[in-house]
Write a protein that binds this DNA or RNA. Structure first.
Length: 914
RNA sequence: GCGCGCUUAGCUCAGUGGAAGAGCACUUCCUUCACACGGAAGGGGCCGCAGGUUCAAGUCCUGCAGCGCGCACCA
């Protein structure tokens, strides 16, 4: 390939490779493949949505899983698509249409016209997010992209409705539901968010009436309420039958102020005597508990708050048409004037808000469709018994709790954008009740005699079918046979009830099998101050801008590196910067290899491996091991951190630097060096072979590393894989020689390690050399010698030391020379460090500061003594020596010996200063 | 009220039974021929508090405190 540029420029390569992968069909899943299947269905983003950081986290994890599975040799289906997102989309379109002045309320346009606008909107804005996912590198099978309102998908939704209706699990009824006055629709319980609010508890006085129906002076029943405006619809005052304060009032009547309506005092167990005044105003139509009480006591149900949240005629002339919040004020003012407001207390309570429109939810009595959840018991046990594994596992508890308290699901919505309820009502007045309702995927044969139910279904009533409705259900398609149940689901815990639980139930009910085997719950992405990301706070960075600035790989890597399994992520742009820096490091490490010239090297020759070579191969082996283990536990942050450390600290900082002793010096120098070794003079040919072997190790490590990084950094790894020529020996397959299908590195097998003599290699010996280098650099630092100044070190070796090792030392120390002198007698105060390799001195001409050197050594000695004391304390404990396992004991003894040896060397050096 | 999570270096966080870690920030030095999106050295921790289990506890158990998040019909 052409020479790599000095810095990695992601913009230049990302689109190129994404296009290549798509063109080669790398993402396309083949149901006929003999390979084992791996499948994920994407949590469908809102069709008109924009990519945000939550998507980045979520889809990056899925992409990592998919890419890893491909490298593991599996046939992968990552099925993408979008959700019609009923309320959300309809609200967005309504807002836009109002802004354009095309309507005030959707009724102005009418259903058909309005839906045309929504579809137009969908055509225009839908699919933006798909393009954004491609930018991120998502390897979805786009040929199978689905939308929850595709005709085939809609048919699935209808079929499911009809089937459940016929089973008696779906029914229609007049119930108290959560009503969103802004969207003017019913909501499910899950769509209501409880928000703690500072409000008031108003104590209202209702005049008691005597037997003649006349107010008795000074006699009142006092009720406490947080919602005084609802009093206009009161039908009773309730007390606890066992409350001695009020038993005498039961059966009496009182006058409802403002309405001048006579209402009874009733007794109901529901009332808690300890709360408020012990008397509860009963508003049958606007409070769920009051509704229950009203049913028990046969009270009327006057509706004083309408579907749009404004007061109705029944609220009285003075209040008709007022907004409920205005009415609250007005009622309070009026009651105050009439001296019927006893007192106002500050009161903190929870108010239900619509998750979508962020307005307080109104309990509202209306005709709705409900579902009794199917296959609930089976679904609950599937998770509890681990057939479906949650990661992290703790979410099973949340799931179980919800499954154990299932309440019927209100599935109808008074919207237009969505799947229409497949039910028609006969216009004829005669005939049996059953004959008046037509429920079928097809309209009745004589449609002119029927009226279709106006409602649409909750969006989640289509999403819960996603894992199989996207794969061709109800047909027994090859795709379903191959890829259902899916392998993993990646989603947020906030939709565990909305989606995960319901998909499990749908899976069992309609497929007779679980929909997925593993569920990975991500955390929530927050800003660096820990706040949720939101448009209003403006703290939500645009992922596309980040991609443009740093590259998609950088964004992916930075996000994954700071996202531990199931914990919230405090996102900081610094994380992406880190990712960008890392990509650049990877790039330049490959560039270094490229600048050494030569073809990609093949087999490593075991006989020519140096200790350093073996050292890095062992570290690589360990890294492969750790990363593979991290993958198995979905610990991607551990995987990235391990990779980062291995590559940057171990490979680049140490191995590459050490390899320069072989690679970047002239052959003559190596030749001279080899004459001094015990192997004797090496021929030029042998030296070339050694050099080639070092290149082979570089190639080996890099080609493994690129593969290990590929799931996280798909673009740069492909660019380098191709550019470096590592695809050379790969077989041609569906994607050509892409890294996407390169085999995932396996830990080096025992025979492999034997082959390369890796077990014989004493990694610790290399560690000791590197440690000596660090100490030597420290010497220079402590002596205040600027890094630019060339210095000479003297090494008094503890044993024979090959000339090549000395050269490595010299290079790593950035020294002019390291003179080896077994008989070196350091001058008094010459700074030196003392290791098992030998003593390393930094002779300073005329600048010896005995006191400074003494201080330095004394400080070091203190450190050593502390370590020795710690180990010795344990070893002196007979309980420890008696009970600790042998290997732990041995380790401690060895450690003690090492520290003691160090101590001896330092004491010796100190003695020479006397 | 019930449940869950968090509390480790200035900041953000890893680390589930055997020598306290990373990134960022900080101090000092270095434009040395892969990389200044870089290199080198360094400073900085009663691992929230109190008990307990254990030869051994940041790690397991029990309390407590603070923060956060779910669930729950108290007007």
């Amino acid at each position: 390939m052409s020479e790599l540029s000095k810095a990695y420029e992601p913009q230049a390569v990302e689109d190129k490779w994404y296009g290549f992968w798509e063109q080669q069909g790398c993402f396309t899943a083949d149901p006929q493949a003999t390979k084992a299947a791996f499948s994920i269905v994407i949590p469908p983003p809102n069709v008109t949505g924009m990519l945000h950081m939550g998507h980045v986290l979520n889809t990056t994890i899925q992409d990592i899983l998919a890419r890893k599975a491909r490298m593991d040799g599996k046939e992968v289906l990552w099925l993408p698509g979008t959700d019609h997102a009923g309320i959300a989309t309809q609200a967005v379109v309504e807002k836009a249409l109002r802004k354009q002045g095309l309507m005030k309320h959707r009724d102005d346009l009418g259903r058909e016209k309005f839906l045309e606008h929504v579809w137009a909107w969908k055509e225009k804005h839908g699919g933006i997010i798909i393009q954004q996912l491609k930018k991120l590198g998502c390897s979805c099978d786009w040929s199978r992209e689905r939308f929850t309102m595709d005709p085939e998908y809609s048919r699935c939704v209808q079929m499911v409705f009809v089937e459940l209706y016929r089973k008696g699990l779906i029914y229609r009824g007049k119930r108290m539901v959560n009503w969103d006055p802004a969207a003017r629709t019913a909501l499910s319980d899950e769509e209501v968010e409880m928000v703690e609010e500072k409000g008031h508890l108003w104590h209202l006085k209702y005049p008691l009436l005597d037997q003649n129906g006349q107010p008795k002076a000074g006699e009142f029943v006092v009720v406490a309420t947080t919602r005084p405006e609802t009093m206009l619809g009161d039908e009773a005052v309730a007390v606890n039958p066992n409350d001695p304060r009020y038993t005498r009032l039961v059966g009496r009547r009182c006058l409802l102020p403002l309405q001048n309506k006579v209402i009874p005092v009733i007794a109901d167990e529901f009332v808690d005597p300890k709360f408020g005044t012990g008397c509860v105003k009963v508003t049958p139509s606007h409070d769920p508990n009051d509704y229950e009480m009203a049913v028990r006591h046969n009270l009327p149900f006057p509706v004083v708050i309408g579907p749009d949240g404004s007061m109705t005629k029944e609220a009285g002339e003075d209040f008709d048409g007022m907004d409920r919040m205005e009415a609250r004020q007005a009622v309070i003012e009026e009651l105050t004037e009439q001296r019927l407001l006893l007192k106002t207390e500050d009161y903190v309570h929870n108010v239900g808000y619509s998750q979508r429109s962020h307005v307080p939810v109104e309990p509202y009595l209306s005709e709705q469709w409900f579902l009794k959840y199917p296959s609930a018991a089976l679904s609950a046990s599937a998770v509890e018994e681990g057939k479906i594994a949650f990661h992290p596992e703790r979410w099973t508890k949340t799931y179980s709790h919800w499954m154990g308290n299932l309440r019927d699901w209100c599935i109808s919505r008074q919207l237009w954008w969505g799947h229409r309820v497949p039910v028609w009502y006969s216009k004829k007045t005669s005939g049996s009740e059953a004959a008046k309702v037509w429920c079928d995927v097809n309209p009745p044969p004589d449609p002119e005699n029927w009226q279709q139910d106006p409602d649409v279904l909750d969006t989640w009533f289509s999403s819960w079918l996603w894992p199989f409705a996207t794969m061709g259900w109800p047909g027994r398609t090859d795709t379903l046979k191959k890829f259902y149940p899916t392998s993993d689901l990646v989603t947020g815990p906030d939709i565990i009830f909305f989606w995960v639980a319901r998909m499990i139930m749908a899976g069992y009910e309609f497929m007779g099998d679980l929909p997925f085997r593993n569920v990975y719950f991500t955390g929530i992405i927050r800003d660096k101050l820990g706040r949720k990301m939101s448009k209003s706070l403006g703290n939500s960075p645009d992922p596309l801008e980040l991609i443009a600035k740093y590259g998609a790989d950088a964004l992916r890597f930075g996000t994954m590196r700071s996202a531990p399994l199931g914990q919230d992520v405090l996102f900081d742009e610094k994380d992406v910067e880190l990712g960008r820096n890392f990509c650049n490091k990877l790039w330049n490490a490959c560039r270094f290899r490229q600048l050494q010239g030569g073809e990609v090297q093949g087999e490593i020759a075991p006989a020519l491996l140096s200790g350093y070579d073996k050292w890095i191969l062992l570290k690589l082996d360990q890294a492969i091991h750790d990363i593979t283990a991290a993958f198995a536990e979905y610990k991607f942050n551990e995987a990235t951190q391990t990779l980062y450390r291995f590559f940057w600290s171990e490979y680049c900082d140490w191995y590459v630097e050490a390899s320069k002793a072989v690679l970047t010096r002239p052959v003559e120098a190596l030749h001279r060096e080899s004459i001094e070794t015990d192997r004797g003079a090496a021929s030029t040919h042998e030296i070339a072979a050694r050099r080639a072997n070092t290149l082979a190790v570089l190639d080996f490590v890099l080609s493994h590393t690129l593969r290990l990084f590929h799931p996280f950094l798909p673009f740069i790894t492909e660019e380098l894989w191709q550019g470096m020529g590592y695809s050379r020996d790969m077989p041609e397959n569906q994607g050509g020689k892409t890294i996407m299908f390169a085999p995932w590195p396996k830990p080096l097998e025992e025979d492999f390690r034997g082959h390369y003599g890796l077990d014989a290699c004493d990694g610790r010996k290399v560690d000791a050399k590197f440690e000596l280098v660090t100490q030597g650099r420290n010497l220079r630092r402590e002596a205040n010698l600027p890094a630019s100044k060339k210095v000479k070190f003297v090494l008094k070796p503890a044993g024979a030391i090959p000339a090549h090792d000395v050269e490595v030392l010299r290079l790593l120390l950035n020294a002019e020379a390291v003179d080896v002198d077994p008989d070196f007698q350091p001058g008094k105060g010459t700074p030196g460090v003392h290791s098992e390799i030998g003593d390393l001195y930094l002779p300073l001409e005329g600048l010896v500061d005995v006191a400074a050197e003494k201080a330095r050594l004394t400080k070091e000695l203190e450190k050593i003594e502390a370590e020795i004391a710690k180990v010795q304390q344990k070893l002196n404990n007979p309980n420890f020596t008696g009970k600790a396992p042998a290997h732990v004991l041995q380790e401690h003894q060895q450690r003690l010996a090492e520290w003691q040896a160090k101590r001896a060397r330092v004491i010796e050096a100190l003695d020479r200063l006397k």
